[in-house]
Structures are given as structure tokens and as C-alpha cells.
């Protein structure tokens, strides 16, 4: 898993998952805030027709943070929503990931991925149940 992918999973964590993982972390990491956590928005872009020229669709709330561990790693987070604590914790785990990728993965990311899989699967099977199966009835006078 790349750092990019790990950050994507962290962005989908909920606050409790991050909290629990931090509480269970062997040595509480020492860190300082470099920027934020702060909440704001980003402008979402769409594409004309789906694949053409870009246009501004509307905004979405976002929180972000940048932290530095006492060991020097700088962690970033950008997450949808306005949860500053979540943004802070996600940045902290991004920083930790840089030196302890495996520990972050097994203690935190694996659990989040599982939950996301279950949720995605539920939507998929519910949607699949509404699939239309067309059949054509033969009509007319052919023998």
C-alpha cells in the first residue's frame, strides 16, 4: 500500500476508529501542529458531458491538518466534512505511517478497509436486487 492509498483509507475512517487506534498505540506519539486542524471548503469540479471540459459543480466541506512528530515526520490530512479531530488524527497517522507502515496498517487501516468493504458490498447487493431482466414475448402470427 502506498502512502497515497493509506491517506485515502484514513480519509474514510471515523473518529472512533482513529481514537481507538491511537489509544492502543504502544507509545503515544509526540507531535506538534504545523497547520490547522482547520475546516473550509473545496470547489468540486465536474466535466461537461462526463468527460469534456471542466466546470465548477459546487463546494464541499473539508478539514485538513499538518502535524510533525518529534521524530521529524510530517503528516498531512485532507478529509471531507468538518471534523477537526478526525483531521488531526488522520494527519497523525499519516505521519506514523511513514516510519511504521505495517503497524498502522494492521492496527488501523485493515479494520477501516473491512468496514468499507462490508458497507460497499451491502449497497451493491441491494442495488443488484433491483436489476431489470427484460424478456421479449413473441407476438404475431408467425408459425
Amino acid at each position: 500500500m502506498t502512502r497515497q492509498e493509506a491517506m485515502g483509507v484514513l480519509a474514510r475512517a471515523n473518529r472512533e476508529e482513529l481514537h481507538d487506534a491511537l489509544d492502543a498505540w504502544p507509545e503515544p506519539p509526540q507531535s506538534e501542529a504545523l497547520r490547522g486542524p482547520e475546516a473550509g471548503m473545496i470547489m468540486l469540479r465536474g466535466r461537461a458531458g462526463g468527460g469534456g471540459a471542466s466546470f465548477n459543480l459546487g463546494e464541499v466541506t473539508m478539514a485538513r491538518a499538518t502535524v510533525r512528530l518529534s521524530t521529524g515526520e510530517v503528516g498531512f490530512s485532507c478529509v471531507l466534512g468538518r471534523d477537526l479531530e478526525k483531521a488531526w488524527l488522520a494527519a497523525l497517522f499519516d505521519a506514523l505511517w511513514q516510519s511504521e507502515a505495517e503497524a498502522v496498517d494492521t492496527r488501523l487501516l485493515a479494520g477501516i478497509r473491512n468496514r468499507l468493504d462490508v458497507e460497499g458490498r451491502q449497497t451493491a447487493v441491494e442495488t443488484a436486487a433491483t436489476r431489470v431482466n427484460f424478456f421479449t414475448m413473441t407476438r404475431g402470427e408467425d408459425e
Partner: peptide, 8 residues
């Protein structure tokens, strides 16, 4: 506003 997204 912090910026822009990549096109969806």
C-alpha cells in the same frame, strides 16, 4: 476555500 478537486 482551500482549493479545487480534480474533476469527478
Amino acid at each position: 476555500r482551500f482549493g479545487f478537486s480534480e474533476p469527478l
